[in-house]
């Protein structure tokens, strides 16, 4: 029997982690105990940023990572984080289908085998006040954590402030930041209703977590066990997608229960945001080159 260590970045109670644990159990049963997977959630083995390299170099056999975190390395990794390119669960699935061959090829160059990917709930906008148009955002201090979010702030006239994930709650409580783009899950987990008042479901993008295995390790797995693992992975992908949808509703209800106004953005605001999205899509296409163009073309053709 062989034991695989599987680092995951998010806390044990997060639906991605729970899904990972179920996947691990499935693999244990499916391979008749020949391969067992031990999940290490909450960044307790490696922090999120280090997980991809850890798998690549064989420090662990398998792991989960938000690949859009690696867009500096290759813009293509950011396909699932282009604002307003695929703003719904259904569109996001289509986009993923279009991108999958490219992503798999890219991962293949990096000694990685993709097993499954699960989207986060859609990203919405958090504010401390009612916002009906981009003009209302003028001068609001907006939490940015990467180039995409900085650019989004710039295009909407907000002031980007850099706040690290660990300091989110504090930054809102003390007014260092007044707004952010994030999933309902993050706001719910960080209990942002203590400081923020409005959540707009703009479904800006649905970034994905990817579970990947080291190719040298994968090559040594027997065909029967590969088959069993891929079956478990397909099940995990479907289960994770459903959990993400369920969790979206759950966190929306939770935010509302916490006292926030939770609603879709008004038509005027949404229209303006789509325009900004188009600008950002063309900027991403410049960075992502032909590969990126192929993904978007395939997606649009569906």
């Amino acid at each position: 029997a062989e034991k695989w260590d599987m680092p995951m970045a998010y806390s044990a109670s997060n639906f991605h982690s729970e899904n990972g644990v179920t996947f691990a159990e499935c693999v244990g049963a499916g391979t008749n105990g020949e391969i067992t997977i031990e999940v290490h959630p909450g960044g307790s083995l490696f922090a999120g940023a280090d997980i991809k390299r850890a798998i690549q170099t064989g420090q662990v056999q398998i792991g989960e990572r938000l690949l859009s975190g690696h867009q500096n390395e290759s813009a293509v990794f950011g396909f699932d984080s282009v604002p307003f390119l695929a703003p719904s669960f259904d569109d996001s699935e289509k986009l993923y289908d279009a991108a999958k061959p490219k992503i798999e090829a890219l991962l293949d160059e990096q000694n990685l085998e993709l097993l499954y990917a699960v989207p986060w709930p859609p990203q919405g906008l958090y504010f401390k006040k009612e916002v009906n148009s981009v003009a209302d955002m003028e001068g609001v201090k907006f939490r940015s954590y990467n180039n995409t979010t900085s650019r989004l702030a710039e295009l909407t006239g907000m002031l980007p402030v850099t706040v690290e994930a660990a300091e989110i709650s504090q930054a809102f409580a003390t007014g260092v930041a007044e707004s952010m783009v994030s999933s309902g899950a993050t706001g719910y987990d960080r209990k942002v209703w203590e400081s923020l008042t409005h959540f707009y479901e703009v479904d800006a993008w649905l970034p994905r977590n990817y579970v990947m295995v080291n190719q040298d390790v994968w090559a040594d797995v027997s065909d029967a066990n590969k088959q069993a693992i891929m079956t478990c992975a397909a099940e995990a992908e479907a289960r994770g997608l459903q959990a993400s949808k369920d969790y979206t509703q759950f966190t929306m209800d939770g935010l509302a229960e916490g006292g926030m106004t939770v609603q879709p953005a008004g038509d005027a605001l949404m229209g303006e945001l789509r325009e900004i999205g188009a600008t950002m899509t063309s900027e991403w296409l410049e960075a992502a080159g032909d590969e990126g163009k192929a993904i978007v073309d395939t997606f649009k053709a569906q």
């Binding site: 806390s11 709650s169 504090q170 409580a173 960080r190």
Partner: peptide
Amino acid sequence: GVTVNESITK
């Protein structure tokens, strides 16, 4: 607080 998802302010 980050590990167990509780409010850091609280």
